[in-house]
Simulated assay, not measured.
Amino acid sequence: MSDDRGTAPRLAGERREAIAALARMHGVVRVSELADRYGVSHVTIRRDISALVDRGALTRIHGGARSTAGMVRAAAGDDQVRIGVILPASRYYFRELLEGIREGAARAGIAVVLAISEYDDGEERRLFERMLRAKVAGVLLATAAAEPETGWLDSSPVPVVLVERAGPAFDHARSDHEDGARIAVAHLVARGHERIMLAACSTTPTAARLLAGYRAELAAAGRDLLEPFDLPGEDASPTGRRARLHDLLRACAQQRASALILHPEGFALPLLEAAEDRAVAVPADLALVTYDDELAEFASIPLTAVQPPKRDVGSIAVDVLVRRLTRPGVARQRVTLLPRLVVRESS
């Protein structure tokens, strides 16, 4: 008969080391998840957490524990770690991204301090300095510019993760908008469309990447590249926007386009009205794919849409920041998530 009197303490010790390592990696561990992972009771996991708290490796939160590595120091003595979030807007695209950030923060047991830059570079920098004075542990930043000039962030005393933006010196989490355009083109090509137009507002942060994906997929499919159509910005008057949409439909006719990819999505509903005014049937005369999928399903003709993974980007951006906080030496993290196509009646 073997002597296993030392086995239980040894297994408990190994499990506790593994729990501490998981907490360092993910920032937070949950009692229920650990119990499932190791096949032990909740009471046993709480005992493990108590031992790790006594060692100073963990601090308790509701339903689990948080690693003390890096984050407690950054929290400047507060009961809850706080991260700063600076977004250029709080509506439309960024509203859902913010929901993902909130989900990720709740999962990690940290608080969010939000500020909106309104696409103003100067305001963005002012808000960043304000975040530092508020002693946040790190910052999630979606810059006003699509291609950010990030030199001013080099001296940041806290980690910065770019959200829906990319910079060579920083961690980031973003959607692959090039791929989003490619799957829209591929869908239309598969439906037999030979001439596909892209209409986008060139001043949006997404437009350049959509154009790159559009061109690449058309070339791969052996289709002609049509001249992209530039839509007005949000500051255009309703009358000016309607007039420009009629110009777009004329351009589609002149270039013999049978399909259109449209961004931003706010133009989709008025475009359907303009098409009805001009007796252009969707999808019989002009198939339509919109980009974002905020309003598409509510249109008079439910619209096929490319859906960027906004909520997932926000949630994963928090994970990236937590990993940087708890493991400062971790390799640079560049997370790119793929959009998906939601097919409806317009194509």
Rank of each mutant, 00 (worst) to 15 (best):
A12V: 06
D54R: 14
A287T: 03
F229P: 02
V322P: 04
F267P: 03
A134Q: 15
Q307T: 14
G100P: 06
A274V: 10
S237C: 04
V343M: 05
R126I: 04
S258Y: 00
L52F: 09
R91H: 15
P328L: 11
V72Q: 13
R324C: 09
R126L: 12
Y119L: 10
M71P: 00
L218W: 04
D224K: 13
V330F: 02
A253K: 11
F298W: 13
G240M: 02
P302A: 11
D176W: 05
P308S: 09
W152H: 11
S347Q: 03
R215T: 15
L272K: 04
A115H: 13
L127N: 12
E276V: 01
D54Q: 14
P205A: 13
I101S: 05
E294Y: 04
G64A: 07
H42C: 00
A199D: 04
A18T: 06
F229I: 02
V72D: 15
T143I: 08
L325G: 02
L225T: 12
R60Q: 11
R215C: 11
E99G: 05
H62N: 10
R125C: 04
V81H: 09
Y93S: 09
A268D: 10
G222D: 12
A317V: 06
A220D: 14
E297T: 04
R250Q: 10
A287Y: 08
V163D: 12
L141Y: 10
P309T: 12
D154L: 14
D230I: 01
A35H: 01
A18I: 00
V185Y: 05
L211K: 01
R195I: 07
Y92D: 15
T150Y: 07
A284L: 09
R91F: 11
A275L: 09
M71N: 02
V158A: 08
I196V: 15
R30H: 15
S117R: 11
V160H: 08
V322G: 07
R191M: 15
V29A: 08
R182E: 14
S67D: 07
A274K: 04
